[in-house]
Computed example of a mutant assay.
Amino acid sequence: MRIDLLTLFPEMCETVMAESIIGRARRKGAVQVCCHQIRNYAFDKHQRVDDSPFGGGMGMLMMAEPIALCMDDLIAHLGYKPYTIYLSPQGKTLTQKRVQELSKMDGLVLLCGHYEGIDERVLEAYVDEEISIGDYVVTGGELPALILADAVCRMLPGVLADDECFQLESHYHSLLEYPQYTRPAVWRGREVPQVLLSGHHENVNKWRREQSLLVTARKRPELLASAELTEQDRLFLSQHGFEVPNK
């Protein structure tokens, strides 16, 4: 997969995407990430990309043409228009399910807004979807874009050591992850659950499933409505005082 970030801060994005798991994945060719400076497509010597909004109001808006020229250049280079996402508090909230869906695409363009936003006309012309990372506002679209890019990249083949790494994580199956422990077995008087020291894999897996159910029921009970639960799961939750809504 190729991910292109259109931004006023490509160095910031490149720094984050060059580190840790994603950085290693890029270096071995499991994913391609390219950061584009929108200012390079500005018209004047000051590389100005913003102007005051028609009708008045606070702040400045990013102008349509520099973004459009950046998009046109990318489309000409690729030979096609990739699926384009604008990171916006007005978009649908990002979920793991949507991350999985996006990871199946050949390429993504992530458009990072700034100031008070972007001229609506360029959104109408190029953007396929708006996505939010939550019901709050940050200073620019770079951090949300990096979160989305990271989440998508780690779902790709060859990025993590084993697909099981993400298949057992929180939200993958609409359940939160079970508690985990490492050495020492006793820390400040707190012991690791004995089942994890038993070496009995079937019992360990059963415990992990049950703990995942309990953690989800306590912390994010609304997720149970979309989880794939067996009758045994439902009985277990009922025995622990949790009601599971029917689909």
Rank of each mutant, 00 (worst) to 15 (best):
A217V: 12
E14S: 06
E101M: 14
L78K: 06
F236P: 01
P144K: 07
K28L: 09
M17D: 08
D162R: 10
I147A: 02
L223C: 13
I22D: 11
P82V: 02
D51R: 08
D162Y: 08
M71R: 04
F236M: 02
S212H: 05
V33F: 05
A145E: 06
V33I: 14
V215M: 14
G241Q: 06
N246V: 11
V127K: 07
V16Y: 15
E210T: 09
Q232A: 15
D128S: 10
Y136F: 14
V152Y: 11
Y115Q: 01
V204I: 14
E11T: 04
L110M: 07
F9K: 04
D106L: 15
P221I: 02
L148H: 03
R2N: 14
V33G: 03
K104D: 13
G189C: 04
M105N: 09
D44K: 04
E191S: 12
A149P: 11
G158L: 08
A76W: 08
I85K: 03
L196D: 10
T216M: 07
V49A: 01
L235T: 06
H173C: 11
S170H: 03
N203F: 09
M12H: 06
A76S: 14
H36Y: 14
H173W: 12
Y80W: 12
N203Y: 04
L110Y: 12
H77V: 08
T84Y: 03
E164G: 01
N246Y: 03
M105R: 10
A30C: 04
R188D: 13
L197W: 09
Q211H: 07
Q180D: 06
Y41T: 02
I38T: 04
G189D: 05
Y80G: 11
S198C: 05
K97H: 09
L160W: 09
G56L: 02
Q96Y: 13
C13F: 09
G23M: 01
M63Y: 01
E177G: 04
T139P: 00
M1N: 11
M17R: 07
L74P: 01
R48L: 02
T93A: 09
P245K: 06
G189K: 03
D162Q: 13
K45H: 13
M17T: 12
Q32A: 15
L69S: 11
C13D: 08
Y83P: 08
E14W: 02
R27C: 14
R39H: 04
L61T: 01
P144N: 07
S132D: 02
P221K: 02
V192I: 07
L237K: 05
H171T: 08
E101N: 12
R190W: 14
G241H: 11
L108Q: 12
K97A: 14
S198L: 08
Q100T: 00
R154V: 10
C34F: 05
V31E: 14
I75W: 15
H36R: 07
D119C: 05
P221R: 00
K28M: 10
R121Y: 12
G199C: 02
A18W: 12
T7Y: 00
L108N: 06
T93I: 09
H114V: 01
I38A: 02
I38K: 01
G189A: 04
C35E: 13
A227C: 11
E130K: 05
R209H: 15
I75F: 15
A125T: 02
K28C: 09
D233E: 06
G59L: 07
